[in-house]
Design a protein around this nucleic acid. Structure first.
Lengths: 222, 222
DNA sequence: TATATAAAACCGACCAGTTGGTTTGTAAAC
DNA sequence: GTTTACAAACCAACTGGTCGGTTTTATATA
C-alpha cells in the first residue's frame, strides 16, 4: 500500500477510535493505550502518527471544527440569498446538527477541555468571529445573541447528559429558534432599547402578566 | 478543637481545594494527591474524610446543589408574589448567579461528569422538576423553555471557557432574559403554534426569507 | 480533679496498576 | 540503502487506595 495513504488510514483509525472511546466510556477514559487497543494499532503506531496526546486532542478538535465548518458553509450557501440573517440561521442549524449527530464529534471538545483547557482557545476564537458576524447582520443583535445562546444551551445540555428535555421538545425548540417569523415580535432596534430591568435580582416580573397585549404591537425596521 | 468541627474543617478544606484545582488546572487534573497537596492535609487525612474519590465528587455535587437550592428558594420567596412565572424567573436568576460567582462551584458538575457520568443523574432529576414547573406556569411553555435554554447556554459557555461574549454583553443578555415584558410580543398559546420548520436539516430558510414582511403578520391566540 | 483508656483525626510510606512517552527492532515503500 | 510505518518491550511518574502508626480529643473512673 502507498505510504501516504497508509499513514492517513492509521491517523483516521486512531481519531475515530478516540471518538468512540469518549462517547462510550467518557472523556476521562481517553488514554493512548485505549486508543491503540480500540484502533487495532500498536501504541508505537499511534505515537508515530501523533507525537503527544495533546496532538491527538488537537487533531480531534481540528477535525471536528473542519466538519462543522463544512456543514456551515454548505448551509450558508443555501440560505444566504433568501435569509435576512444568514449567519444566525447557519449557526443555529449547525448547532442543531451537532446536537443531533449521533456520535457527536463535538465530544472532542469535552475531551480537550478536560485534558487541556488551553486548547479551548481555538474554538473560542472561531466562535468569536461567528458571533461578530451574527451581531453585524442583525437588526437586534442582542436578540440574535440570545437565540444563539439558546441553541448552545440545548446543545451543551444534551452533550453533557444533563438535558431534562425529551427529543420531541428538543426538536420543536430548535425549529422555533430557527423560524425568524417567530421572533420579529420582540425585535428592538439596537440602541433605543428600554431597560426596565436593573441588574440586581429580587424583582423581574412587573410586566409579562398580560401576554397577548403586546403581540399586536406593530414593528418596523430601518 | 472540637472533634466535629475539626472534621468539618478538613472536609471543607478538601472540597475547596478540589474546586480550586478544577478551576485552575481543569477537571482532568483533579486527583486525590492533588487535593491533599492543595488543601494542606495529608493524603491519609483526605482519605479519612472521603473513603473514595467518588465520595469526594458526590460531596462536591451535593454541596453545590445545596448552595444553589438555597439561593433559589430565597429568590423564589421574594418573587413568587409579584411574578406571573416565578419558577422561570428564579431559574434564570439562579443560573445568572452560577455564571457570575467567581469560583463557580458549578465546576463540580464537570468534574463529576468526567469521572463518573452516572453521577449526573442527581442534578438531572432535580432539573427535570424545575423544567416541569416552568412549563406548568407558563402561557407559552416553549418560549419559557427557550429563555431557560438561553440562560444555560450563557452559563455553560462561560463555564467551559468558550464564551465569546464580553462581560457587558453577558450581563445585558441576562437582564433581557429576565425581563418578562421583552418577551410578551412572541408568546403563543401552547397548542396552535404553526410549525413551518420540519426537523430535517439541509433546509431551514424557506420562511424567514423576507423578514420584515413576516414581522407584520398578525398572530392571534385563543 | 487527675488519670487511664478508648476513639477519632490524621500522617506518610507503600502497593499494584495505569499513564504518557521512549527505545529498539523490522519489514515494506521509496 | 535510506527513509517511513509500524510493532513490542520498556520506563519513570503518577493513579486511587491501603495500612501501621502518631497525635489529638472524648469518656470513664477514681
Amino acid at each position: 500500500m502507498d505510504n501516504a495513504t497508509r499513514s492517513e488510514r492509521s491517523r483516521n483509525a486512531a481519531l475515530e477510535a478516540a471518538i468512540r472511546i469518549i462517547a462510550r466510556d467518557g472523556p476521562g477514559r481517553l488514554t493512548l493505550d485505549a486508543i491503540a487497543r480500540e484502533s487495532g494499532l500498536s501504541k508505537g503506531g499511534v505515537m508515530h502518527q501523533f507525537r503527544t496526546k495533546e496532538a491527538v486532542l488537537k487533531a480531534l478538535l481540528e477535525r471536528q471544527m473542519e466538519h462543522f465548518e463544512e456543514f456551515s458553509t454548505g448551509y450558508m450557501a443555501k440560505v444566504s440569498a433568501t435569509s435576512a440573517n444568514p449567519n444566525l440561521a447557519t449557526q443555529l442549524a449547525t448547532v442543531r446538527e451537532a446536537a443531533t449527530s449521533p456520535n457527536s464529534a463535538a465530544l472532542a471538545l469535552v475531551a480537550a477541555m478536560v485534558e487541556n483547557p488551553g486548547l479551548m482557545m481555538l474554538p473560542r476564537e472561531r466562535e468569536m468571529k461567528r458571533v461578530a458576524a451574527i451581531k453585524a447582520e442583525s437588526a437586534d443583535p442582542d436578540l440574535a445573541l440570545l437565540r444563539w445562546a439558546a441553541a448552545r444551551g440545548l446543545l451543551l445540555s444534551s452533550l453533557f447528559g444533563m438535558s431534562p428535555l425529551s427529543k420531541d421538545e428538543h426538536d420543536r425548540l430548535f425549529a422555533r429558534l430557527l423560524d425568524d417569523g417567530q421572533w420579529a415580535g420582540v425585535e428592538q432596534p439596537a440602541k433605543e432599547r428600554q431597560t426596565k430591568e436593573q441588574p440586581t435580582k429580587a424583582r423581574a416580573a412587573k410586566s409579562g402578566a398580560a401576554p397577548a397585549a403586546k403581540a399586536a404591537t406593530p414593528r418596523k425596521r430601518a
